[in-house]
């Protein structure tokens, strides 16, 4: 690290953030440029991606070993009644917190848009989602606005590195609690470009971005929430066609400029695989 070029090279920390979908907007573009040309950096990325493990599955064994009966008995001995259901995550504290929630789409890795756009977009979405009449539909509006920042050109420069894509998918899947692999999310005539982790309204939001020649960016977005299991519905936002549905504890949304009928075909494929 003795000259300006070397000093600008992405660090291991940034490579891991790239794999984890946590890269900040100012470093993402630099990362993509270097990864496209620097073989040493690609080798380093492969080494670090080899550090991935099925952590969640392995540590689930320890959850099974937890002395639940003792812990619940202890809690029961403290003042007040105790609920009995063991849940993996609390969706949101307790009490009437809706009006006080900090809403908005947090862009952890907004590198595909100009860095200066993210704060402005965030603020706009925050104001919108904080309205009294804000509804659960707002996340789709937020995603649609975010996708307007993407062009075919911005996606085309992202190098296709299978190991990196697999890691991104695993990381995003880990965040939303859904197993994701390249095979599960591949769609005919669409080139998967990358997965990233966002947040909307304090909930994790996974976004998988594809490129379709002719129609530009297509995105699959996933949030984990309490859902009622809705069938496919279509709508238009920001000039995009959208198909959305929910299965189990997940909300899905497929968005792009292609005809809604084609989106619906893709939605059927994804809905079958992502259970």
């Amino acid at each position: 690290m003795t000259n300006a070029h070397d000093n600008d090279l992405p660090t291991d920390e940034e490579l891991v953030a790239y794999l984890d979908g946590e890269l900040t907007s100012d470093t993402y573009g630099r990362m993509v440029r270097y990864l496209a040309i620097d073989h040493d950096l690609q080798r380093r990325l492969i080494l670090l991606s080899g550090g991935q493990r099925p952590f969640r599955e392995a540590f689930a064994l320890l959850l099974e070993q937890a002395p639940q009966a003792n812990l619940k008995a202890t809690l029961a001995s403290l003042p007040g009644p105790v609920g009995s259901s063991e849940v993996v995550r609390s969706p949101r504290g307790w009490g009437n917190t809706a009006k006080a929630m900090v809403a908005g789409l947090l862009l952890f890795m907004a590198g595909l848009g100009a860095g200066w756009l993210a704060p402005a977009l965030n603020q706009r979405l925050w104001e919108q989602a904080s309205d009294e009449g804000a509804s659960a539909d707002n996340w789709r509006q937020a995603v649609a606005e975010y996708l307007t920042l993407f062009t075919a050109e911005t996606l085309a420069v992202i190098p296709d590195i299978p190991a990196a894509q697999e890691q991104e998918l695993a990381a995003v899947g880990n965040r939303v609690g859904l197993k994701l692999s390249p095979q599960m999310i591949s769609l005919p005539n669409l080139s998967f470009k990358r997965a990233q982790f966002l947040e909307y309204d304090n909930k994790p939001l996974g976004q998988l971005v594809y490129l379709e020649p002719g129609n530009g960016p297509v995105a699959l977005c996933i949030t984990a929430d309490v859902t009622s299991g809705t069938d496919y519905q279509t709508e238009q936002r920001q000039g995009f066609n959208i198909v959305y549905w929910s299965r189990g504890r997940y909300n899905f949304m497929l968005i792009g400029h292609m005809p809604a009928s084609r989106l619906q075909e893709y939605a059927g494929v994804l809905s079958y695989r992502l259970k």
């Binding site: 812990l71 619940k72 009995s84």
Partner: peptide
């Protein structure tokens, strides 16, 4: 305004992860 009752109800859902 929720008080210890709601805290305890919510706590019960996180015991195993806290133990881990």
């Amino acid at each position: 305004t929720s008080g210890p009752e709601e805290v305890k109800t919510a706590l019960a859902g996180h015991l195993s992860r806290l133990w881990r």
